[in-house]
Amino acid sequence: MRFLPDGPRIPSHLLSQRNEGNVIFFCGAWISRRADLPDFDGLTRTVVGKLGSEKAVEAIERGDGSDQIFNALVREFGQHEIDREIYGALKAIKAPDLPPGDLRSFKGSEWSPPASHNKL
């Protein structure tokens, strides 16, 4: 499937797996910024702020990485609660302003996973 005429062709099995919650597509900051979505640091701070975890605030102040902070949040609140907050924070405020054909690395190409990718 293609979402743009000259965009990447995304295999339907990946879209199905995404719909079932088994796959997350990560886009670079360029697309996220144009959709007014937070970067990883911003996402971490938003989730920590919503949950009010003193331990996580201290971890941010110490300079711990977002991955460490999310691991601690999962231990404190459980995966379901963290997922709920992440999904809420990542709802696009607006559609990304993407000029046609400006997805340079994928333009007109067939998507293919890296060699180390595990098949679903």
Rank of each mutant, 00 (worst) to 15 (best):
R75W: 01
L51A: 06
S16H: 10
L37V: 07
G101L: 12
Q79D: 11
P113Q: 03
V74I: 12
R84K: 15
P8S: 12
L14E: 15
G49V: 01
L103R: 04
D64R: 08
L4A: 14
L14W: 08
G42N: 01
I10P: 01
T46V: 09
L98R: 02
D41Y: 00
E76M: 04
E58P: 01
A115D: 06
F106Y: 06
K94E: 06
R104H: 15
S32K: 10
F106S: 12
P11L: 10
P38F: 00
S12W: 06
G65R: 07
I82H: 00
L15S: 06
D36Y: 00
A29L: 13
D36V: 00
I82L: 02
A115K: 03
S116Y: 05
D6L: 12
S53K: 06
L15A: 08
A35I: 02
Q68I: 08
H80W: 04
N22W: 00
R62N: 15
E76S: 07
P38V: 02
P114E: 06
K55L: 13
D83C: 06
H80K: 11
P113V: 02
L73I: 04
H117M: 15
L43D: 11
P38I: 02
G88M: 02
A72R: 05
Q17H: 06
D97M: 12
C27I: 06
S66N: 07
Q17M: 11
G88I: 01
S105G: 14
P99M: 10
Q68N: 12
L90V: 08
P96S: 07
P11K: 10
G52N: 04
S66W: 00
G65I: 03
G63L: 09
I31W: 04
G52Y: 00
I24Y: 02
G7E: 11
A56G: 05
G88N: 03
E20V: 08
E85S: 10
W30Q: 09
G42S: 01
W30T: 13
F25L: 14
I93W: 01
D41T: 04
L90H: 03
F26E: 15
A59S: 11
L90E: 08
E58N: 12
D83W: 02
D83M: 09
G21R: 01
F77I: 04
V74F: 04
G88D: 03
G78E: 13
E61I: 07
W111C: 15
E85H: 13
S116M: 05
S12I: 15
R33A: 14
R62C: 15
L14H: 13
